[in-house]
Write a protein that binds this DNA or RNA. Structure first.
Length: 440
DNA sequence: CTGGGGAAGGGGCCC
DNA sequence: CGGGCCCCTTCCCCA
C-alpha cells in the first residue's frame, strides 16, 4: 500500500527543518549570504552536489561549507526553494540566471523547465513584439521574457505534487508532466514542430522559396560553433529535434561535471570553485560562457532560432539588430561606394545606383555604359524623395547621419514600388506583413 | 573541381 | 543593458 501524500509531506518536513536550521549539515555561501541545507537533499537534487558530497562522504561528521560566486543569492534562493518544494519560481528577469545556475549545478530538470520557459516566452512574445516593434525600443527590449507572473504563479500554484522532483533519475518526465499539461506547455519530449525552433525552420524553408532572395543557409539555426556540425550531421534537414537537443544537453551536463567556472578547484577542500570571474553566464545549450547576461541573451538566440528583426525591404529576419542593419545597408542601400563590376571607388558623381528588385548596388559610369544604361533600372529617384516606408517613422535608425549618406537613406525610403515586403509562403510571415514589422 | 568574393552570422567589447 | 562596431569564420555562388 502506498500513501501518496507521504512524499510531499516528507519534503515539507525537510523544508521546515531547513527553515528552522534543524539537522542542517551543509552551509552554502553565495556572495556572502549563507544558506543552510541538508546534504542528503542536495545530493539527491544536484549532480554537482552529488559529485562534491560523494567526495566528502568520508567526513560526514563535519558540516560541509560550499561557496558560490557564479550566481547571485536570489538565484540560489530560487534553486534551493525548488529543491525543497518542487516549485520553481521563474520570471523573465531571473530565468537566464537560474538556467545558468542550474546548468552549473547540473540540475537537468530545472534546465529543461527554463529552456521551455524561454522558448515559450519567445514564441508567444514574438508576435507581440512585432506588433509593437515600431512603438518603442522598450517593448522590443523586453525580449519576450517578461511575462513572469504567468510562469511563476503557475509553478507555485502547481504545488500539489512536489514529490519526486528531487530524483535526478526521473529526468524531465515527471517535472514536465502535469505541470506542462495544466499550463499548456508540453513536455520537452512531446514538443514538435510547433516549437519556435521548428517554426523557424519552417519559415526558413519557405523564405528560401522566394525567387527574389538569396537567403539563409541550412546552417542558420545551428550556427554556433560548438553545435553547428553536430546539428548538420544529425539531421538531413539540419534541424536538431527537441529530443536530440535535450539528449545533447543532457550529455553535455553529464560530461562537463560543472567545472566550467573553475577548472581544478579544490573540491575536496569543501569549498566550491571561487577563483572564477564574478557572474559568468554559461549557455545551457552549449559550453559557451559569457561575461554578461546580455551577451548570453544574444547568444541564446542562435539556439532558439529567434529572429526578432525583420528586414522591411525583403522580409528576411535576423537575430541581431546590427546584422539587420548591416544587411540593409549592404543589400538595400547600396551603401558601399564601390562599383559592383569593376570594384573601383565611386561617388554620386562618378557612378549610379542600380536597382534589381529590392537589391541596390552601384555601378560606375563606365561600367554602366558598358552594360548598357537602358538595360538596368537606374534609381533616378534615389536622391529626390524622402518617404518613409513605415509611414514617416521619424525615428528611423537607418539614417546614416552623415551628409555623405543622405542620398542612401533617401534611396531606401523613397517608397518606390520595388521596395516591397516579400510575400512568402508562411503564415507567420503573412502576419508580419500585415502588421508591418519595422526596421528600427 | 577550385579559388575568390560576397553575405550571413557569431563573439568580444566599447560606448 | 542595449546598440553598435569590429573581427572572424562559414557558407554559397560564380567564374
Amino acid at each position: 500500500m502506498e500513501i501518496s501524500s507521504h512524499q510531499s509531506q516528507l519534503l515539507q518536513q525537510l523544508n521546515e527543518q531547513r527553515r528552522q536550521d534543524v539537522f542542517c549539515d551543509c552551509s552554502i555561501l553565495v556572495e556572502g549570504k549563507v544558506f543552510k541545507a541538508h546534504r542528503n537533499v542536495l545530493f539527491a537534487s544536484s549532480g554537482y552536489f552529488k559529485m562534491l558530497l560523494s567526495q566528502n562522504s568520508k567526513e560526514t561528521s563535519q558540516p560541509t561549507t560550499a561557496t558560490f560566486q557564479a550566481f547571485s543569492p536570489d538565484t540560489f534562493t530560487v534553486i534551493l526553494d525548488f529543491v525543497y518544494s518542487g516549485k520553481l519560481s521563474l520570471t523573465g528577469q531571473n530565468v537566464i540566471e537560474v538556467m545558468s545556475a542550474a546548468s552549473f549545478l547540473q540540475m537537468t530538470d530545472v534546465i529543461s523547465v527554463c529552456k521551455t520557459f524561454i522558448k515559450s516566452s519567445l514564441d508567444i512574445s514574438e508576435k507581440e513584439k512585432d506588433r509593437y516593434f515600431s512603438l518603442s525600443d522598450k517593448d522590443a527590449n523586453s525580449n519576450g521574457i517578461e511575462r513572469s507572473s504567468f510562469y511563476s504563479s503557475g509553478w507555485q500554484e502547481e504545488g500539489g505534487s512536489p514529490h519526486s522532483r528531487l530524483s535526478p533519475d526521473q529526468g524531465t518526465g515527471v517535472i514536465s508532466g502535469k505541470s506542462w499539461n495544466k499550463y499548456n506547455y508540453p513536455p520537452v519530449s512531446q514538443r514538435n514542430t510547433q516549437q519556435p525552433l521548428a517554426k523557424h525552420e519552417q519559415r526558413r524553408d519557405s523564405i528560401k522559396k522566394s525567387k527574389h532572395l538569396r537567403l539563409s543557409q541550412p546552417s542558420e539555426i545551428a550556427h554556433c560553433k560548438s553545435s553547428k556540425r553536430d546539428a548538420r550531421t544529425s539531421d538531413s534537414s539540419s534541424h536538431v529535434s527537441q529530443s536530440e537537443e535535450q539528449a545533447q544537453i543532457d550529455a553535455e551536463v553529464e560530461s562537463t561535471v560543472g567545472f566550467q567556472y573553475g577548472q581544478g578547484s579544490e573540491v575536496t577542500s569543501r569549498s566550491f570553485p571561487d577563483d572564477l570571474p564574478r557572474m559568468r553566464f554559461k549557455c545551457p545549450y552549449c559550453t559557451h560562457v559569457v561575461k554578461r547576461k546580455a551577451d548570453l541573451k544574444r547568444h541564446l538566440r542562435c539556439h532558439t532560432g529567434e529572429r526578432p528583426y525583420p528586414c522591411q525591404a525583403c522580409g528576411k529576419r535576423f537575430s541581431r539588430l546590427d546584422h539587420l542593419s548591416s544587411h540593409f545597408r549592404t543589400i538595400h542601400q547600396a551603401c558601399k561606394l564601390i562599383c559592383r563590376k569593376c570594384k573601383r571607388h565611386v561617388t554620386d558623381l562618378t557612378g549610379q545606383v542600380v536597382q534589381e528588385g529590392t537589391r541596390r548596388y552601384r555601378l560606375c559610369n563606365e561600367c554602366l555604359a558598358e552594360v548598357g544604361i537602358d538595360s538596368l533600372p537606374i534609381d533616378l529617384e534615389a536622391e529626390q524623395h524622402l518617404m518613409s516606408p513605415s509611414d514617416g517613422d521619424k525615428d528611423s535608425r537607418w539614417h546614416l547621419s552623415e551628409d555623405e549618406n543622405r542620398s542612401y537613406v533617401e534611396i531606401v525610403e523613397d517608397g518606390s514600388a520595388d521596395l516591397v515586403i516579400q510575400q512568402v509562403d508562411d503564415s507567420e510571415e503573412e502576419e508580419e506583413k500585415e502588421i508591418k514589422p519595422n526596421i528600427r
